[in-house]
Structure formats: structure tokens, C-alpha cells
């Protein structure tokens, strides 16, 4: 077991180095003038030369790569070409907003998706199953950017129920002191007992959260249903039936417990992707998260920022993947 974990960690590190290498070289072949971005569009030749030296562009590509790896080991992701600020510090500022959004979306996905999947499996091939199947497949077939536009129209303009975007109302931003413990605003408010601010934040998160949650809701419902049906088809369940165990008890006690593992793994992995794929939704809802940050970086080809976000996304995925594998491996039924 320990040997397996050690091997998995080792191979994760190899993968991580691969990711770093590929992003580094992609960034260096993008046709753009980083030194001009750094020094300004009308900089003089000397200023540009100074910028080249400051950015280390005067060195050969392999040298730059080694320096970059060294910096990474110290948690230094370089400086953004646009804002001249350390990318790591900027990520630290934008990640919590996205994390809050994605965590809440996946919580919602679990709360809705699992019951939906269970009922669907229980009533297989009946009307309810068809409806839930249609709903969950529909949810993964919708272009999110399109859904976001509709939500705004309905809930802000027509019903005036929810704010159109942003993380807080103007008044709250100006007159309230922000609690800053975890960076997850809702949680921080809860911890400090600031319920009025929490309410404001909650109203703001509803629309983007539901938009993002649509995909994982469909995913979780489908996964739960398939996993359950698969287990319901297993011999021991059939055996249980023949021993006269009640359907309900079978479903809860044996089937569901065994199906949750696979579902959880897949949900965790898809969360890794979602963390950096929220930018279409964030742009539409003016959500100040990593997605907004990357949009700005992409439009100006601010490559230290792009690499930073890519590495963050890849790390999330690799770590979640590693955890999932270790959890599966610790299941005594799995032989390695």
C-alpha cells in the first residue's frame, strides 16, 4: 500500500514537471512582445533592453527554463506583464472567489444530483426516470454562456429578485469591513457572525452558482444512476433479494454505499477542470475570480499570468486525481 502511494506521488511529480515544461514552451512561442508590454508601447530602445534583462529574455531558452524552474520551487511565478505584480500574489487574491463559487456549485450538484440519480435508478424505465434522464442530459448539453444571459434577463430584469453580477452590493463594498479569514466570503461572514453581509453575498452568488452547477448536477445524477444500476445488477444484490431483503433496505444499505465511491471520484476530478473553466460565466456575471483574471491575461497575452493559472488548474487536477486513486486503493476490495 505505502509503496503504491509512493509510486503514485512520484509519477504525479513527473506529470507536473511535464505540465510545467509544456506551458513554458507554449508561452515562449506565442508571437508577442513581452518586453514592450512590460516597458510600455512607446518605450525607447534602452528601456526595452532594460525590460528584456529584467524579464530574463536576454538569456537563452534553456537558461530561462532552468531559472523558471528554480523560481517555481520558491513559489515564485514571475511578475504579470500588465500589472507588474507577482502572479502568485494576484492568484491568491482571485482564487478564493472562484473556489467559493465552484465549491458551492458542487455542493448543490451533490444535493440535487444524488437524489435525482437514486430515484431515477429506483424507477428505471418509468416516467420519472425518463424525465430525470432528460433533465440531467439536458443540463450537460446547454452552453453555459447562453444560460447565463437568460438568467440575468429573468431574475434581474423581469423579476428583480437577484443582483445582476458582482460579489457584493455597492453599499456593502464601501461601508462594510470585509472579514478576511479564508477568503471564502460566505464562510468568513458565518465565522464572524456578520449575517447581513452574508445575506448580501449569498444573493450575489445564486445566479452564477446555479449556472455553473448545471453541468455537475447532470453529471452527478447520471453517475449515481449508472453506478447504482450496475450494483443492483450484482450477484450479491440478487442474492439479497432471494433472501427476502426489502428493496428499500437493499438500495440504501448496500447499493448506495457501494456506488458513492466511484461517483465521488468523478465529481472530484470534474471539479478540478471546472475551477479554471468558469471564465465564460464569470465574465457575464462580473465575478471577480480566476476566470476574470485569465480573460484579462489572455486578451493581452500576459504569459506569466496564463502559465500561473494553467499550473494552478493542472495542480488541482493532479492532486485530486492522486487523492482519488489513494482512496480507491485503500478500499480493501481492490487488489493492486
Amino acid at each position: 500500500m505505502l509503496k503504491y502511494i509512493f509510486k503514485r506521488i512520484l509519477s504525479s511529480i513527473v506529470v507536473l514537471i511535464g505540465v510545467v515544461t509544456i506551458t513554458f514552451f507554449i508561452a515562449r512561442v506565442i508571437p508577442s512582445n513581452p518586453e514592450v508590454k512590460w516597458a510600455g508601447q512607446r518605450a525607447t530602445a534602452e528601456q526595452l533592453e532594460a525590460a528584456r534583462i529584467e524579464l530574463g529574455l536576454d538569456k537563452s531558452l534553456p537558461e530561462q527554463y532552468v531559472i523558471y524552474l528554480g523560481d517555481l520551487l520558491h513559489g515564485n511565478l514571475g511578475k504579470s506583464l500588465r500589472t507588474h505584480q507577482p502572479v502568485a500574489a494576484e492568484l491568491k487574491r482571485y482564487i478564493p472567489a472562484t473556489l467559493e463559487l465552484v465549491l458551492l456549485a458542487f455542493l448543490l450538484a451533490v444535493l440535487i444530483g444524488i437524489p435525482l440519480g437514486i430515484y431515477s435508478a429506483k424507477k428505471k424505465d418509468r416516467m420519472l426516470d425518463h424525465i430525470s434522464r432528460f433533465f440531467s442530459i439536458g443540463a450537460v448539453s446547454l452552453p453555459t454562456f447562453w444560460v447565463a444571459l437568460f438568467f440575468q434577463l429573468i431574475f434581474y430584469k423581469s423579476l428583480s429578485l437577484l443582483p445582476i453580477g458582482g460579489r457584493l452590493s455597492v453599499e456593502a463594498t464601501i461601508f462594510q469591513t470585509m472579514p478576511n479569514i479564508t477568503g471564502l466570503l460566505l464562510l468568513d461572514c458565518l465565522l464572524t457572525g456578520n449575517f447581513s453581509l452574508m445575506g448580501d453575498a449569498f444573493l450575489h452568488i445564486i445566479m452564477p452558482c446555479i449556472t455553473i452547477a448545471l453541468y455537475p448536477i447532470g453529471l452527478v445524477a447520471r453517475m449515481t444512476r449508472s453506478a447504482l444500476l450496475e450494483i443492483l445488477g450484482e450477484d450479491y444484490i440478487t442474492a439479497g433479494h432471494s433472501y427476502g431483503l426489502r428493496d428499500g433496505k437493499m438500495l440504501w444499505k448496500y447499493a448506495l454505499k457501494n456506488s458513492l465511491g466511484t461517483t465521488a471520484t468523478d465529481v472530484a476530478l470534474s471539479m478540478g477542470y471546472t475551477l479554471t473553466d468558469t471564465f465564460l460565466v464569470e465574465a457575464i456575471f462580473s465575478w471577480p475570480g480566476i476566470g476574470s483574471y485569465i480573460s484579462g491575461a489572455v486578451t493581452t497575452l500576459d504569459y506569466p499570468a496564463i502559465i500561473g493559472v494553467t499550473l494552478f488548474g493542472a495542480c488541482c487536477y493532479i492532486i485530486l486525481n492522486l487523492l482519488a486513486d489513494i482512496i480507491i486503493a485503500s478500499d480493501p476490495r481492490v487488489r493492486l
Binding site: 452590493s169 449575517f195 452574508m198 445575506g199 449569498f202 444573493l203
Partner: peptide
């Protein structure tokens, strides 16, 4: 929901 109800324009100065 409770939190949301308490929210709203509580900060209007």
C-alpha cells in the same frame, strides 16, 4: 434564506 432576508439594503448610509 434567513441570511438573505437580513441582508438587502442594510448598509444604506
Amino acid at each position: 434564506g434567513l441570511a438573505a432576508g437580513l441582508g438587502g439594503s442594510a448598509f444604506a448610509a
